[in-house]
Simulated scan of single mutants.
Amino acid sequence: MAYVTSLFARKMVAAAGAGIDQRATLEGAGLNPDAPWDPKVMIPATTYYEMLEDMAEQTDVTELPIHVGASMRCDEYGALGLAWKAAPTLGASCARIARYARIWTGVVTYELREHPQGTLFILHREGERRLGLRLSNEATLASAVALARQVCPVPFSPLAVFVQHKAPESKAFHEAWFECPVTFGADLDAILISREAMERANILGDEGISRYLMSDLDGELARVQMPPAVVGQAKDAIAQSLNAGTPRMADIARGLGLSARSFHRRLSEHGMSFQALTEETRRELAEGLLRDEQYSLAEVAYLTGFSEQSSFTRAFKRWLGTTPASYRKALS
């Protein structure tokens, strides 16, 4: 079963204010209204979605997810929030969320993808596009922008925001808060961030603190990850096929003795997508190969499925916020 942190549920209820019966809503989600807010207390994702849908029957929730996203603070995310603040650039901050999000949630994965105008910070959440999931996606996108505004030395706004579900009756509030065009009915849930913004130094960027925090997060991720057999097998198969280019899901599924549909469902049960799993495998393989001096940067690029070293360099910088050469130099 997939879980989300109770912090999001409590934030949603608080933001709804007098429009709902807050105490009954929290109790209905299995939370003690009088207990301290502990982000490590988790609730089933389906319970969270049902709670949001019940709230929608009591009050207008059009603006609710934006209010909740705007209220998020780096410090509320514990070590992950500190790692976001201490990263040298916004690009590195986003890379850390993409890498460590599984510590906080089993239903969402993140991807950084190149775009002609910059970088797409993409939210992947599998499941039926029910109202609760849609509201949760909007809040997640808004929280990413809110956190970016807390670390940027100049006012930050994305170039564009994309949302897969249909638009509310008015999207004026969304566009006013994001300060950019918001496209509903898109083919992905994402924020488009300019290259300039991604490369700009964070206010509190600190390499020493970053190394300490990332070491701590790596340990925590290892404890919560414990990938099921199908994920481990898939990653092995992906790694072995990367030197022939980006693998196809149908081919990997066939090699595991599964249909593409069954493979997709098995990954979704663990809050993962094939695209995100391929990116994760590429990154992990690249990190491992860069630790071995016998492989040139061009060879590492080839073995991780890139036809050109420049494409590998851009992807690696998107993953870890630094270039492969700088990463190798830091290791030595």
Rank of each mutant, 00 (worst) to 15 (best):
A24V: 01
P153M: 03
A250I: 15
R328S: 11
C74Q: 15
Y110M: 07
R266Q: 12
P155C: 08
R195S: 10
G205C: 08
R261L: 12
K166D: 15
S93K: 06
D187L: 12
E175I: 09
R282Y: 09
L26F: 05
G219C: 07
E111S: 13
F274A: 05
E128I: 09
E179M: 08
G81Q: 01
E138V: 14
I252L: 06
L267F: 11
G288T: 03
L192E: 01
A260C: 05
K235M: 13
L242V: 05
H174M: 05
A92S: 07
G118C: 03
M72N: 11
E207K: 11
M42A: 13
K40I: 08
D75L: 08
G69Q: 03
A315N: 09
T183K: 06
L188R: 12
E196C: 01
R129L: 14
A330W: 10
R200F: 13
I122M: 11
N202H: 09
S259A: 07
K40E: 15
L82P: 00
A92C: 00
Q150H: 07
M249C: 13
A276T: 14
R248N: 12
I66G: 04
A330N: 12
L221E: 10
A86Y: 10
L80S: 00
R102M: 09
G245N: 08
K40S: 15
E280S: 13
A87H: 03
A167Y: 12
F184I: 08
P324C: 09
G118E: 00
I122V: 14
F263C: 06
A222M: 04
A70C: 09
L331M: 14
G28N: 03
G30F: 01
V41S: 07
G127V: 11
I43D: 02
V61R: 01
V151G: 00
G78E: 00
G208D: 13
A250W: 02
H124C: 12
Q150L: 01
M226C: 13
A253L: 05
V224H: 04
A276L: 09
V154W: 12
D216Q: 15
P36S: 04
A35F: 07
